[in-house]
Amino acid sequence: MVSSNGNHAEPTFLVFGKSGWIGGLVGDLLKQQGAKFEFATARLEDRAGVLADVERVKPTHVLNAAGLTGRPNVDWCEDHKIETIRVNVLGMLNLADICFSKGIHLTTYATGCIFHYDKDFPENSGKGFKEEDKPNFTGSYYSYTKAMVESLLSEYPNILVLRVRMPIVGDLLYPRNFITKIIKYDKIVNIPNSMTVLPELLPYSIEMARRGLTGIMNYTNPGAISHNEIMELYKQYIDPEFKWSNFTIEEQAKVIKAPRSNNLLDTKRIEGEFPQILGIRESLIKHVFEPNATHADKVRAEVRQMRGR
């Protein structure tokens, strides 16, 4: 955005998702950067409210971290399909259309859980799904709606869609952290996946918005890491006596309502924008396990309590 005197105007950010996990982290980052921003007050499905927020704040950039994933997990969406449509489809399109009509750049934190390994993209082959590949996973209703809306959003020239996967933060006791989820279980599946280390990648998303990037971005660290490899890192840095076992996808299916996505995403685009990005293992060590090792006793004690040990 350029002001009338020819100078670049200071970006103004409007953030949707104040009460959510990623939205709160985005707000914290903008505050740390001294950026001009406000949180939205409207829910995405309230088009009049969204428009009022946009007209009130007059943003140059909108960052959307609002959406419906379900609690405690995406299985919730299987029994609440109308609510899921209202937010993830109608609500997202409300925001996209308003931003387009107002000439505002929109970045939305979406999902990469719309793909799964198959004969063309075999597990452990190193072949990742690219931004232009069509989603091939609709096993959960959550993923079904997200794949549908991604296709629609791709028609808008002002939108950057970030495919987040299995998001991870440094706090190993935070319940929505992917690592926190799996270390609570005695049994886990063991499949390599692309993942998003938020302490490293969230600042990149704000910079992407400033750069005006659009289209789809696979928003994960390069490479894949398996559940067992993460458990081994936890054992190495936090708890040498940590134990777990594996079960198959078929066995997992008996305890969940909807299948889960497992995939590797190609990261050439994000690596082109940020050559310094760390591979997933290196990023986990730097941003998660090394910091937690400084207070391993506390983490170990609380995790053991969560596991009833």
Rank of each mutant, 00 (worst) to 15 (best):
I206M: 09
I182M: 15
D186M: 06
I230T: 09
P222H: 07
N177C: 08
I183N: 00
L201T: 12
I168Q: 08
Y219N: 13
G170W: 00
A209L: 06
T196I: 02
K187V: 05
N193A: 03
D239W: 04
N221C: 10
Y237I: 03
E207Y: 06
H227N: 15
D171T: 04
L162Y: 08
K187C: 05
P192H: 06
G223I: 04
F178V: 03
R210L: 14
Y219L: 10
L213D: 13
N228A: 14
K181A: 00
P203F: 09
P175R: 02
L173Y: 12
R176L: 09
P167L: 01
R210T: 09
I183C: 00
V169N: 08
I183V: 15
K187E: 14
V189Y: 05
I188L: 13
I216G: 11
V169S: 06
A224G: 06
N221A: 12
I206L: 15
I179W: 05
I230D: 01
N218T: 08
D239L: 05
I216V: 15
I188W: 05
N218W: 05
G212P: 09
D186P: 11
R176M: 07
I206V: 15
T220Q: 08
N177R: 08
Y174D: 00
N190L: 03
M166L: 13
Q236C: 08
T196P: 06
R165S: 13
Y174L: 02
E232P: 02
P222Q: 07
M231Y: 08
D239E: 10
V169F: 00
G170L: 00
S226W: 11
Y219M: 10
L233D: 01
G170P: 00
I182L: 15
D171N: 15
Y204W: 10
E200R: 12
L213H: 14
G223F: 05
V197R: 08
Y237R: 06
Y204Q: 13
R165L: 11
Y204E: 12
Q236G: 03
I230W: 01
L172I: 01
E200W: 13
I183M: 01
I191F: 10
K187P: 06
L213E: 15
D186A: 14
I230F: 01
N193D: 06
K235Y: 09
